[in-house]
Simulated scan of single mutants.
Amino acid sequence: MAKELTVGQVAERAGVAVSALHFYEAKGLIQSHRTAGNQRRYGMDVLRRIAIIRVAQELGISLAEVGTAFAGLPEGRPLSREDWEAMSRRWAAGLDARIAQLQRLRSGMADCIGCGCLSIDRCGLLNWEDKLAAHGPGPRRLLGDVD
């Protein structure tokens, strides 16, 4: 029989709060079973899932996206290299788009941060007569929708 861990052991080993484990379980990201005494027990495989959840969160990947990636994987077995490669391929395009957006934001805001004035003619946020409203809500230039 595979070693099982208590909720406290998983929390300690994974570096997360017990409440985070309960939250992940409620979201369907991890699973436990109950003992005859109604105590939660987790398989060792849950540690790798939690590690992936934590890395994904650091990368800005939503728990919903993690849940979608986990949905096609069998419970009770450690995630494999192939599983991780498939997840990372799925997430790569979104990460690349976020990186590009952050680079645009950093470049586009440098002049405004440098002078403190949002009304100069070269400012990336300047929107004379609200002409960019036709392109949608929000800061269209900083979002990369228009030049």
Rank of each mutant, 00 (worst) to 15 (best):
E129H: 13
C123A: 10
A2H: 01
R98L: 08
V66K: 06
A97I: 01
S88P: 00
D145F: 04
V16A: 08
L105Q: 09
H135C: 10
A36K: 05
Q103V: 07
S32M: 03
R141P: 05
H135Y: 11
D147W: 01
E85T: 13
S80W: 04
L142A: 09
A86I: 09
P137Y: 05
R41N: 06
M109P: 00
R89P: 00
A71G: 11
I52C: 10
S80M: 09
R13I: 05
Q101Y: 04
R141F: 02
R140D: 02
L21S: 10
L79K: 07
T35L: 03
A86G: 12
Y42F: 15
I53Y: 02
A110E: 15
I113N: 03
G28V: 03
A36H: 01
V18L: 14
A20C: 03
I61D: 10
G60W: 07
L95N: 10
A17S: 11
D96Y: 06
C112I: 14
D147N: 01
Q31R: 15
P78A: 10
C123R: 12
G28D: 07
S119W: 06
G72E: 15
L118H: 09
H135T: 00
K3T: 12
H33T: 12
T6S: 06
A69V: 12
I113K: 12
P137S: 14
L29C: 08
A11C: 00
N127C: 09
R49S: 05
R89S: 13
K131Y: 02
W91T: 09
V146Q: 10
A14F: 03
A100R: 15
L143D: 04
R41H: 05
A86Y: 11
P137D: 14
R140Q: 15
G114P: 00
M87H: 12
Q57E: 12
L118G: 14
L21R: 01
R89K: 13
F23E: 08
L73S: 12
S80D: 04
I30K: 01
Y24E: 07
R90K: 05
V7M: 04
R48L: 14
E85C: 07
C117M: 07
L47F: 01
A71E: 15
L132H: 10
A2R: 09
E82Q: 04
L29W: 02
L79S: 11
E85Q: 15
V46P: 02
S80L: 08
G116H: 05
A20G: 06
S32V: 09
R49I: 04
R34I: 03
A14L: 02
D96L: 13
N127I: 03
D96M: 08
L5C: 00
G8T: 09
R77L: 03
R48A: 10
T35A: 03
V7Q: 06
D45C: 04
H33W: 02
D83Q: 09
G15L: 11
D111Q: 13
L102E: 12
L59K: 14
H33C: 07
R40C: 05
A69R: 04
S19D: 11
R140N: 13
P78K: 03
V46N: 08
I52P: 02
A51I: 01
G60D: 06
L95Q: 13
A20Q: 07
G108Q: 11
E85V: 11
A11Y: 01
I99S: 08
A14C: 03
V18R: 15
D83M: 06
R40F: 00
L95P: 00
S107R: 13
N38F: 04
G114D: 09
